[in-house]
Design a protein around this nucleic acid. Structure first.
Length: 620
DNA sequence: TTAGGGTTAG
């Protein structure tokens, strides 16, 4: 008897409804109720319920459904079979999916598409491509669902060997007219962007009649992943002009570029526009916001976002751990790590980079050792070059050079340039010339065009008065055509960016800035500042050296800030290289003499100067 | 019944 007057058509309509409205649990419940009522499912019911199972990977229930299908005699229906392939593929059971696929009498394009997607999702790109080739040789129909999955394979196979094949598939799509489908062009833009072929990505994008938010996102993240963050921001603005509304995905992506560029104004605007849009926030948007705010030195705002999050994952916690460490709050950073573990979330490869970074900037050698050992022992994560570099940096800074060397010699993998640079930098701090020479020579071979080791070694010679050796290294550098990235500082005042090079006189208010510096230097000298000649690296007389130090880019910037910003307002300065020791000391004095908060973000971390003290505890 | 874009790292 049919209860409530429902027949199998009504039940099927309900199940399909739940399934289409992305309520897989509802669909499965409904299917159960239908069975409990004694009503048999048919070839229309099974595909819907199988889709729901695949959606939430309800594998065991799905196997029972498969049993019903066989018993009910629906196993030879092509719709049911393709739904089975899709369900098994989504549940990660590629073998079961393959068994169903191979038992089918007809070559059904939907089933083959599902199989290909399943392989791609599980990372079996070669199998996916093999299936695609087979479809081609069998002369099967290839449709607008097939292309995106296949192109996705080439997106993840970013090697030179697959370049030709990826272009052939693109040609096929053009010849067969499928390139005109938005999903296919989007997959093409994404594929080229992920293969770092931005000109091809841009060409496909440019040919699109109506690029949608996905097309824009693919292009924007292409620029982001290739380090072209400014261009990513420009594209985002163009997207807004063309009246495409940003969604969660593109918002998360652009905020990560804002974080990278530390453009707080832009990031805040993206944040408020997103709130105004009325879209619900997502985990990735919130994660990007936490990173953006901590990277811009706004711990409070990052905290607000963090506190508002109902769901947090390892990325959220890692962003916070890293953010606090960068802002000189290592103890809080480690506290968050403990909270993360207590909440049952496991750290990953990157979490440990953050942890070691935190330890490194607080001089917590023993604790770092414990974390480092726990990586392999507790979490079975193999330490990478970055982790070794952090440890060597940490040991070096705390004067344990021998332990640093020992760690380097016992590495499980061949040390790369990152690790040698950490050792070289440790030598710089502790004046270990011989070891520094060894590290620098290794680096000259590993990365001959990198200016950093030349500069470091030359500076080390200068600081010990070995001017001849310093000059020799500079000549060597010049003869090899290596050029140094010039140091500069910049600041944003009323949405305008002002940048300064060392001894820069190009600014329109140059005279005022230089007289302000003279005043600053005089006042801080009275307060006890003494120039640190270790950082004056020219073989000139003492007075000349001191003048050179006074005109470092960050000092020019702070003088400009004192002139332009009302008293009581913090002065925020960004620098592309690490702050020098002398400037660091000077900033402390300036913060106390002028009663100003100075926030200086260098290439490594934040320094918050207040009342003569820096948040880094002079350890950076 | 099948398809596309994302978040943490010196």
């Amino acid at each position: 008897m049919m209860s409530h007057g429902k027949n199998h058509v009504t039940w099927t309509a309900m199940i399909t409804g739940y399934s289409r409205n992305q309520d897989p649990l509802g669909a499965i419940e409904c299917f159960r109720d239908m069975r409990a009522e004694g009503i048999e499912a048919n070839q229309y019911t099974f595909p819907s319920v199988l889709t729901a199972c695949g959606e939430i990977m309800a594998f065991r229930f799905a196997v029972q459904v498969h049993g019903c299908i066989v018993k009910g005699g629906f196993a030879a229906n092509v719709f049911v079979e393709s739904a089975l392939v899709d369900m098994y593929a989504r549940c990660g059971c590629l073998n079961d999916a393959r068994i169903v696929l191979e038992s089918m009498v007809v070559d059904d394009v939907v089933s083959w598409n599902s199989m290909i997607v399943g392989c791609v999702r599980q990372g079996f790109t070669c199998d996916a491509l093999h299936l695609f080739k087979k479809m081609h040789t069998k002369n099967m129909k290839i449709d607008d669902y097939t292309y995106p999955s296949v192109l996705n394979c080439f997106a993840s196979l970013n090697d030179a060997n697959s370049s030709k094949s990826s272009k052939s598939v693109h040609c096929m799509a053009v010849k067969t007219g499928f390139e005109r489908h938005v999903l296919v062009s989007n997959a093409l833009v994404d594929m080229y962007a992920k293969r770092s072929d931005l000109s091809c990505a841009f060409a496909v994008f440019g040919n699109m009649k109506e690029p949608d938010v996905v097309s824009w996102t693919s292009l924007i993240t292409g620029y982001t992943h290739n380090g072209a963050h400014e261009q990513a921001l420009t594209l985002f603005c163009k997207m807004r002009i063309s009246e495409i509304k940003p969604d969660q995905i593109v918002t998360a992506s652009i905020l990560s570029s804002c974080a990278e560029l530390t453009v707080l104004d832009f990031g805040q605007q993206v944040h408020s526009d997103f709130i105004k849009s009325g879209l619900r926030s997502s985990l990735s948007v919130d994660n990007s916001l936490v990173t953006m705010y901590t990277n811009c030195g706004c711990i409070e705002d990052a905290n607000k976002v963090f506190a508002s999050m109902d769901v947090k994952n390892v990325i959220t916690w890692t962003a916070l751990i890293m953010g606090y460490a960068k802002n000189g709050k290592s103890n809080e950073s480690l506290m968050f790590y403990n909270e993360m573990i207590e909440s049952g979330i496991k750290p990953d490869f990157i979490t440990f980079i953050g942890l070691l970074f935190a330890c490194s900037h607080a001089g917590l050698v023993d604790q770092a050792r414990e974390y480092f050992d726990s990586m392999a022992n507790v979490y079975h994560i193999k330490p990478g070059q970055d982790h070794y570099a952090c440890m060597i940096d940490l040991l070096g800074r705390s004067g344990r050079i021998d332990e640093a060397v020992e760690l380097l010699n016992n590495m499980m993998v061949e040390p790369d340039a990152t690790v040698w640079k950490a050792l070289l930098s440790a030598c710089r701090v502790h004046g270990k010339i011989e070891l520094a020479e060894k590290a620098a020579n290794t680096l000259f071979e590993l990365e001959p065009q990198d200016a950093v080791p030349y500069i470091m070694l030359s500076n080390l010679y200068s600081s010990t008065g070995q001017w001849e050796d310093a000059a020799r290294i500079r000549r060597l550098m010049k003869s090899r055509g290596v050029s140094k990235e010039p140091g500069y500082s910049w600041m944003e005042i009323n949405s305008k960016v002002y940048s300064f090079m060392s001894e820069d006189r190009s600014h329109e208010k140059s005279d005022l800035i230089y007289s302000k510096i003279d005043e600053v230097m005089m006042l801080i000298r009275e307060a006890g500042y003494v120039a640190d000649m270790n950082f004056a690296l020219h073989n000139i007389d003492e007075e000349g050296k001191e003048l050179g130090l006074a005109y470092h880019s960050e000092k020019l910037a702070v003088a400009f800030g004192l002139l332009e910003l009302p008293s009581g307002m913090p002065i925020r300065i960004y620098k592309n290289l690490r702050v020098c020791g002398d400037c660091h000391t000077a900033m402390k004095f300036i913060s106390s003499v002028y009663g100003r908060v100075i926030v200086l973000r260098d290439s490594n971390r934040f320094h918050h100067f207040k009342h003569g003290v820096c948040s880094c505890g002079d350890y950076w």
